[in-house]
Design a protein around this nucleic acid. Structure first.
Lengths: 245, 245
DNA sequence: ATAGTACTATTGTCCGACAATAGGATTATT
DNA sequence: AATAATCCTATTGTCGGACAATAGTACTAT
């Protein structure tokens, strides 16, 4: 049987636990199970799918990891459509794990954030602006040598900005970048002199530009802020081609 | 015992399958298991972790879904560090699932891609340029009414561009966007007259700008291309506030 | 040497059992 | 009656053992 005329479809014999996963996934996507609703108990799922609990449970683990279900009260699972933050966390984790370098992260910041700042100047509403202000002021109160807190606040500034853009796609991407900013910043902040003051200054100018609705200025200062970030790496003597983790 | 003096840590009693997951994950991250290497067989894992197969298998399902292991030959699992494409696929899937709108996607394209085009004009090497050329020519050969193929080629152009930037962070983000471009384009292409011709034209101009290393021109044409994309939506009478799925 | 065959290692699935425990129902206490 | 202590039960987490299916391997016959 070397030559075969009719080719049959590669009949993918999936394990049953995958079918369980897909079935439930589809149900969630299709809206059969809406957000927040509790999943049927394992026994019922066994009944419905006609498989044993072990199999159902393996399917549940897939759903769990994919973020479509989460633990509600006690042990019950509730349906949960993944949101931008989940996406961001998973993405940045995988990227960091994949060994992306300081340079790759920085380059992306450099071409993305200044434009985001333009949009922010145009779009941020009063609430977002005041939220940013609060974050900025909290950075003001941080001690110069409290590196952890400095990083935290600096990143929080970017987070607030991202949220204020009111766009979930951007939010996911920017948040993902923010997590990586935090990761990389944490590793150099101790070695970069005046880090807090410089960040504080840059963010102040950005904030003012936002308030004034001056897109050009916002872009300009954001670009400077990002550039300064790189300067920090250089000063701290970080090899830009090294992985951030 | 209403008032308690000493508060104990909230001792998170994790299920064992989670511990298995974390242990193996850490081993992979830490480099104990390198990329492509085969995972120990289930029985061995049971032995090492002192749990039963059911438990190990649940942990494996978590690893599977998180993309850290994949099926190698036969049934064995091999370790696999997630790459940019995995990230992109997962991210765009989740976002689409989360109900992001045409507008959110388009806005992101609009502020991101023109800048990416600038970088491309500066950085793309000869191989990438010729790859882009190949993609462009293949779109040339597509029939005007072959919508599926048109979308495929149009997206492929963006994909090649993203790959050529040589930056995994950008790659992940742009790929993610590309998938959503494809998804949204697929839904309007039938209703947008001359879609193929217009895409062909825009991409030609972008390509020429790349070849000429003209960053300004590249940005300009890319911006036009993106703007035209939106025009397509409008012409096709798509409600921009509707989810792309 | 090749083709066919039997064997084996490993995964996928099933079954049945039991421990732990959150949450609800019930009872006791003031 | 309100609160606290207690029991009950539904559900998950884990166990151990069993067997079927099958890819890969060793072996055999021609």
């Amino acid at each position: 049987m070397s030559e075969q005329k009719t080719k049959f479809a590669a009949l993918h014999r999936e394990p049953a636990y995958l079918k369980v996963y897909r079935a439930i996934e589809e149900n969630i996507i299709g809206g059969g199970l809406s957000d927040g609703e509790a999943l049927p108990i394992e026994a019922d799922l066994c009944e419905q799918f006609q498989v044993t609990r072990s199999t159902v449970r393996e399917g549940l683990r897939l759903l769990e990891q994919s973020g479509l279900i989460a633990r509600g009260s006690h042990k019950k699972f509730i349906v949960r459509r993944p949101n931008a933050s989940d996406v961001a966390v998973a993405a940045s984790r995988s990227l960091a794990l994949g060994g992306v370098t300081f340079n790759e992260v920085w380059e992306t910041l450099a071409i993305y954030y200044p434009q985001a700042a333009r949009l922010a100047a145009k779009r941020l509403d009063e609430d977002s602006l005041s939220a940013l202000n609060v974050v900025w002021r909290s950075l003001q109160d941080v001690a110069d040598d409290d590196h952890d807190r400095t990083v935290e606040c600096a990143v929080e500034f970017f987070q607030s900005l991202a949220k204020g853009l009111n766009n979930r796609v951007m939010l996911a991407m920017l948040q993902s970048l923010n997590l990586m900013i935090g990761e990389s910043l944490r590793q150099v902040i101790g070695k970069a002199p005046n880090a807090r003051t410089r960040i504080l200054n840059a963010q102040k100018n950005i904030l003012d530009a936002f308030s004034a609705r001056d897109e050009d200025l916002a872009e300009e200062w954001m670009a400077k802020h990002i550039a300064d970030l790189k300067r920090g790496y250089v000063v701290a003597n970080v090899e830009m081609d090294k992985p951030i983790l």
